[in-house]
Every structure is written in C-alpha cells, then in structure tokens.
Amino acid sequence: MIYKTAETIKDTLAVAEKTEDTGWILSHVLDGNYFDFGFFKIPLPQFELFGIDLSITRHVAVMWLAAILLVLIFRSVSKAYSKSKEPSAPKGVANFMEVLIVFVRDDIAKTTIGKGYEKFLPYLLTVFFFILTCNFLGLIPGSATATSNISVTATLAVISFIVIQAGGMMKNGAFGYFKGLIPHGIPVFLLPIMLVVELLGLFTKPFALAIRLFANLTAGHIVIGALLGLIFILKTYFVIPVSVSFALFIYLLEILVALIQAYIFTMLSSLFIGMAVHQEH
C-alpha cells in the first residue's frame, strides 16, 4: 500500500513536471533566489543573520534596482532645477517628473490633507514613485514584481500606518488623537463598542492597502501565465493567437493597473493622513 502510494506519487510527479504542472505560474509570481530569464538563471546571494534568512531574493534585488533608478533619475532632475538660477520651464525627464510631482502635491496631498500637507509630501512622493517603479519593473519579462509580494506590500502599509498615526498624534497630541477617534455626542453605553470599532478601523485601513496592492499586482501576472499556459494544456497551435492576444491585452491592462495602484496607495495613505490630522471632519 505504502509502496504503491510512493510509486503513484513518483509517477504523478513525473507527469506533473512534464505536462500539467501549474507551479511555474506561481514560481513567476513568488519570490526566489534567482532571476529566471527562461533560457538561463541568474543566482542571487543567500545568507542568514541571527537566524533570519536575509537572502537577497529577486524581490529585494528589484526593490534595490527601483531605489537606485529613482535616486539616479531624481538626482538628475534635481540638478536640472538647481542648474538654472532663474525660474525656467523644465525640459525632458524633469518636465515629465514635474508633472507627476505636481500631481501628487496638488491632486493628492493638497486636496486630501489640506493645511500642513508639506510635512507628509516627501513620504507620499517616495511611496508613489517607489510603488510605481516596482510595478513597472515587474512588467519587464524575467524581472519580478516586488509589489506582488504580501511581505513587501504589508511592510509598506505598516509604514503608512505609522506615518498616519504619527501625523495624527503630532497634530492633536497622543491623548487628543485617541479621544478624537470617537465621534462626539454618542451615548455613553455605546462607547465601548465604538472604541473597538474605531480601533479596528485603524488597522483595517493599512490591511486593505496591503491586500489591494498585493492582489492587483499578483492577479495580472497569474492571468497572463494562465492564458499562456492554455497553449500547453490544450496542446494545439491554434490557441496561440488567442492566448497571446489576450495575454497582451492583460499586459496592457497591467500597465494601467501599475499606474492606478501606485496612485491609489498614495491617495488612500494621504486620505487617511488627512483624516488623522484633521479629526473634526
């Protein structure tokens, strides 16, 4: 019986590896210790520190690439500004980045936070451009999407959470902030319930942020993988045009999603900061 089972597993494994294995879809989405370019793999260093696996996985590598790209781009943009003494119209990359920066400043920070938005602007700009760059880097074949990893999105959401709470407490004082969470003029017997609800509300916000970003960025990749996988599952060339065109459509959609999710994460973070800072609304 046991022997038979092992035999069957071996067979299934062999079959699965050859034909119906869908693990490759997930392996594209998941983190790993190598870059997979199809024909060859680039291994990445692995090491542990104090019992924690601190390997440079491909998501870490992509995040670093995004960070390096951002620093290089914005250093040149910043230089373009400081080079001209007289205020002048920006050109090229600086012009494009200025559009995004002004968008984040005027349409996200200024409208949702209002007075005192300047303090949160560096955080919002950084999170916007970081997520945007990670999303776009994930669209490069062979690369990986760091923002489709729940650990990354959850960490970003926790940082957002810290910024939101810190912003609220700095403006209203720690006690005043928690007092302001409970709406005015509610009956006393409702207070315990409201306290629980409001406290839960505090934590659902970053949770939603993390899940939204993770799910949106994961879904597209899985759908593309599944569409292309149809070719191998149906084992016919006729499905190739359909699969490829649909996959291309999803890919284009993902460009849109990359932009929208970066915007939404920043927008909602900004909105929550605004709600924490100006509690009277």
Binding site: F74, V77, S78, T126, A154, T155
Partner: peptide, 26 residues
C-alpha cells in the same frame, strides 16, 4: 527577511530622495 529588506530599502530611499530630490525640487 524580505520585510527587513523592504523597511531598510524604503527608509534609505525616503531619506536619500528627501535630501537629494524632494527638498530642492519642491
């Protein structure tokens, strides 16, 4: 490990960009 790397990357990026870019650009 990834969480730690994300925090480190993001915080360093935040400080670098704040100093290099956001300050002068804004």
């Amino acid at each position: 490990g990834l969480i730690i790397w994300t925090v480190v990357t993001f915080v360093i990026l935040l400080f670098l960009l704040k100093k290099l870019a956001w300050g002068p650009i804004l």
